[in-house]
Design a binder for these strands. Structure first.
Lengths: 226, 226
DNA sequence: CGCGCATATCAACAGCTGTTGACATGGATC
DNA sequence: GATCCATGTCAACAGCTGTTGATATGCGCG
């Protein structure tokens, strides 16, 4: 029964192989640079198959974005850990190599300026970034969320696409604390829970008494993967 | 004398008209989206003329970037005013309308991901952004400079290209203080003069004394050439 | 006038990219 | 075995974009 479960194993397999290849391509090149023919060649099939399997290049990209956003919880960390987490992710070696799970950040960074990709990315941004982030942030929460994402994207572009020298890996030691402090500023003092100090505006509550410091450095030594 | 001063007035005129049209185009569309034919149509000449006047599309873009960077001092403000100035520029209506002087930021924002534009933009970044900025910033100065530029670019893309809702004009009141505080964090405590207060962390220094407001609109004049 | 030069145009090429229609193949079902 | 459908390939189209060679036009100068 259920004539569409395992029967079409072949198709599902090819389909997912194409999707995976597209995922990698779109994470390394812009929408325009990514050619259907390249994706087809990666999988070892004809261009026409790639096209007809997904209907159009645009719909393929749509599925790629959705898949990337599901593959990895974007902002699962708690508020206090968020800045350090984001900084660490930003300084990760990206998908230079083996990583099978593509970071949605890569997809965003590469395709942020392509007209066809913009509506799709904007939707994904609202759904997979702003929404999960809002309950964790300080008072103009949507603004803080988007600002956070914008800085992540900007830094990601400068580091992984432009390859601007002062942001290369050799300076990670200098960069990480800067980014963390910046992110802390943007994240803010928490979701309007300022009942206590009420000093939500100026983060002057307890002038870093050594203990908590600026959101307890979580060590986060960045996995020595290599 | 000087057989190349006013004699070729015609050519120089057309040339600069093409350059100006290209400036506007590249500030509103990406490198790939900007067609030589459109620029030619703007000026009212043939495509071939545009091409041959500058040698290639790439060289035209090079001149565009150079012209944009000269047209406006990018980071002329003093250190203490820098964050507010940058925030104000970021929230400017961009070139939606009349502005004749194109902000280099627009060119950067639109072309940051185009393979042909990247080397050119990276050079301009080092020359016209990092270099003038470094003497004004805190300790890992080049890193702070690039981080600043990256955030400007990221926010610019999200606001002017992606048109992400929480960053639209109607929220400028909420956004500006956030951006200013963020920029202050990145700018740091000044060029290795961190001996003093170190209270730069908390931006509790008198919420600007009404006078300058957010960075006294610079009025931008530019030589009235025409 | 005729020579040369800069300015500008026209038509066409070469290259590529997403897309599409016609056609092979292979297995499941009747 | 005949039929049907999914899977897949092949060749080709249509559209565009930067680029280029041949060619006109206007102007200064012997």
């Amino acid at each position: 029964m259920s004539p569409q479960l395992d029967v079409q194993g072949s198709k599902q397999d090819t389909r997912s192989r194409i999707l995976e290849a597209a995922l990698l391509r779109f994470a390394q090149c812009s929408y325009e640079e990514t050619k259907l023919r390249d994706i087809a060649a990666d999988v070892g099939v004809d261009v026409a198959l790639v096209h007809r399997t997904f209907g159009s290049k645009e719909r393929l990209f749509e599925e790629v974005v959705a898949a990337a956003c599901q593959s990895r919880q974007l902002f699962s960390a708690e508020r206090k850990e968020l800045p350090a987490r984001l900084a660490a992710r930003l300084l990760e070696p990206s998908l230079d190599r083996v990583i099978r799970v593509v970071d949605p950040l890569d997809i965003f960074v590469r395709n942020l300026l392509s007209p066809e990709a913009i509506p799709i990315l904007r939707a994904a941004l609202a759904r997979d970034v702003v929404e999960p982030l809002v309950p964790k942030l300080g008072d103009p929460a949507p603004q803080r969320a988007v600002l956070l994402a914008a800085c992540l994207a900007g830094i990601g572009i400068f580091r992984h696409v432009l390859h601007v020298e002062p942001l290369l890996e050799e300076f990670d030691g200098d960069i990480e604390p800067l980014i963390i402090r910046m992110m802390e500023t943007v994240v803010g003092a928490g979701p309007s829970a300022g009942a206590r100090g009420s000093a939500t505006r100026n983060g002057k509550t307890a002038p870093r008494a050594g203990k908590a410091g600026p959101a307890a450095r979580p060590r986060q030594r960045k996995q020595g993967a290599r």
